[in-house]
């Protein structure tokens, strides 16, 4: 896809005028000239790689690698700080005779548990998830709209946003608003009316 057109790095004296006199190095679509960096190593024409789209490209090393390094470092420091401050939960040793109340699945499955509260098990536990997974895999084949611009994809974006909102709210409900026996319970978050929350 990318074609190498420029030479450079060889230290020839041609330098800057090279660009204008040799037709092959002319971009197809005129672009504002890049600001020339100066310095001994950059005196010659830099290696130029052009994509068909004639979009400006940059070398991945070091610019992208550097960004990735910073992102990774940031994430690591963040997690390290969290891990020093907050301990992962560890309750009593497992006891199959004592069922905790409420018994909850891990948070990312609480959406499913919420569905199970509301629909017959075959629907909630099997039909819905299978449908979501299959529909997801098929999405690129079903969506025949070739445009990637948000203005042209209102329906797709609306549908996906509804799906995301539903999924997130079910998880939020499961985590924060389901109390004993997985019953709805405002007081977990809001406290009891008239009673000061224990601090």
């Amino acid at each position: 896809m990318a074609t190498v057109v420029g030479g450079g790095g060889s230290g020839n004296a041609g330098g800057a005028d090279d660009q204008s006199s040799v037709p092959i190095r002319q971009p197809v679509i005129a672009r504002p000239p890049r600001p020339r960096r100066t310095g001994p190593e950059l005196a010659s024409t830099p290696l130029v790689v052009r994509r068909r789209e004639e979009e400006e490209t940059v070398v991945t090393f070091p610019s992208l690698v550097w960004k990735e390094f910073l992102a990774g470092l940031g994430a690591f420091i963040f997690l390290l700080v969290v891990s020093i401050q907050v301990n992962a939960p560890l309750l009593q040793r497992a006891n199959t005779a004592i069922t905790p109340n409420p018994a909850k699945a891990p948070w990312y499955f609480l959406g499913l548990q919420e569905l199970l509260e509301r629909f017959p098990p075959v629907m909630a536990g099997v039909a819905f998830p299978s449908f979501v997974i299959i529909f997801m895999i098929l999405t690129p084949y079903l969506d025949r709209n070739p445009s990637r611009r948000p203005q042209d994809r209102k329906v797709a974006i609306a549908l996906f946003t509804i799906y995301l909102c539903l999924a997130v709210s079910f998880v939020v409900i499961g985590v924060f608003f389901r109390g004993l026996a997985f019953n709805w319970d405002w007081t977990r978050i809001l406290g009891h009316p008239g009673v000061k929350p224990p601090v």
Partner: peptide, 9 residues
């Protein structure tokens, strides 16, 4: 890749 579109990164 050796190069990427500037907008992509």
């Amino acid at each position: 890749p050796v190069r990427v579109k500037k907008s992509a990164i």
